[in-house]
Computed example of a mutant assay.
Amino acid sequence: MFGSSLGGANAYARVGIETGVAAASPHKLIVMLFEGAMVAVASSIQHMQSGDIAKKGEAISKAISIIDNGLRASLDKKVGGEIALNLDALYEYMSNRLLTANLKNQPKVLEEVYQLLKGLKDAWESIAPKADIQVQAQQTQPAQSMPKTQAYDALAPQTSRLVKA
């Protein structure tokens, strides 16, 4: 009648993701795409092993979508030259392998794609711009403690702020 508590948790997670995307640099967005594709591939492996064909197909479709509509679409082949062309070919290969893994129920093929994505993500992170590295360092440092202020005591005598005329 009132929905499940998972609905609220999912909405909260979506807001967190949307906030992260809005605040992310273009470099960080690519890292997020790699992470999303990796999560989808890992999920498809679990669903394949448990025999949940529908969820396996959804997860593989999500991974293909992230690779094709996110990673591959973000390539600038004119500016990127040979590297962009090679990445385009690799993304196409991964999409085709995911399709094959889905059709033939081959978890080893999914693991192959996962490892390719992980290698690319690690390489991409290693070339992070200085601004991204500084943000990551700030996020991993413990929060600075707030300056101490005296607690308000309603019964303590107060100094008058009135100005004599």
Results as ranks from 00 to 15, higher is better:
57 G>L: 01
107 P>I: 04
97 R>T: 15
46 Q>T: 14
10 N>R: 11
148 K>F: 10
36 G>C: 08
13 A>T: 13
156 A>P: 10
149 T>S: 12
71 L>K: 04
27 H>P: 01
21 V>Q: 13
125 E>I: 03
95 S>T: 11
11 A>I: 13
14 R>K: 12
35 E>K: 07
73 A>E: 15
20 G>D: 07
157 P>A: 13
4 S>N: 14
81 G>T: 07
139 Q>L: 12
57 G>V: 04
144 Q>Y: 03
109 V>P: 04
75 L>H: 12
6 L>Y: 06
55 K>E: 00
1 M>Y: 04
96 N>L: 13
77 K>P: 00
40 A>G: 01
162 L>N: 10
95 S>W: 02
35 E>P: 00
123 A>N: 13
38 M>R: 09
132 D>M: 06
25 S>D: 10
63 A>W: 01
128 A>M: 04
105 N>Y: 14
163 V>T: 14
58 E>L: 02
137 A>K: 12
82 E>Q: 10
15 V>T: 12
124 W>M: 06
163 V>S: 10
50 S>Q: 10
132 D>P: 01
163 V>R: 11
83 I>A: 06
50 S>N: 08
103 L>N: 15
124 W>G: 00
63 A>N: 05
116 L>V: 04
143 A>F: 09
7 G>I: 08
8 G>V: 07
90 L>D: 06
54 A>I: 07
79 V>E: 14
124 W>T: 09
128 A>C: 04
88 D>Q: 10
107 P>T: 11
137 A>I: 06
140 T>K: 10
88 D>T: 07
2 F>A: 15
156 A>F: 14
161 R>V: 10
164 K>R: 13
83 I>V: 11
82 E>I: 12
4 S>G: 14
154 A>L: 09
138 Q>F: 05
157 P>N: 08
91 Y>Q: 06
14 R>A: 09
1 M>H: 06
116 L>A: 03
105 N>R: 10
159 T>F: 11
110 L>R: 05
59 A>Q: 07
160 S>Y: 09
159 T>I: 14
39 V>F: 05
99 L>M: 14
24 A>P: 07
75 L>S: 10
95 S>F: 00
48 M>N: 10
73 A>Q: 12
8 G>T: 10
64 I>K: 12
6 L>W: 03
6 L>H: 09
39 V>E: 11
150 Q>V: 02
38 M>F: 01
8 G>C: 04
88 D>C: 03
34 F>P: 02
50 S>Y: 03
114 Y>P: 02
141 Q>T: 09
156 A>Y: 13
49 Q>D: 08
86 N>K: 13
72 R>E: 11
102 N>E: 07
20 G>V: 05
133 I>L: 15
99 L>C: 11
147 P>F: 07
136 Q>W: 05
14 R>P: 00
106 Q>C: 05
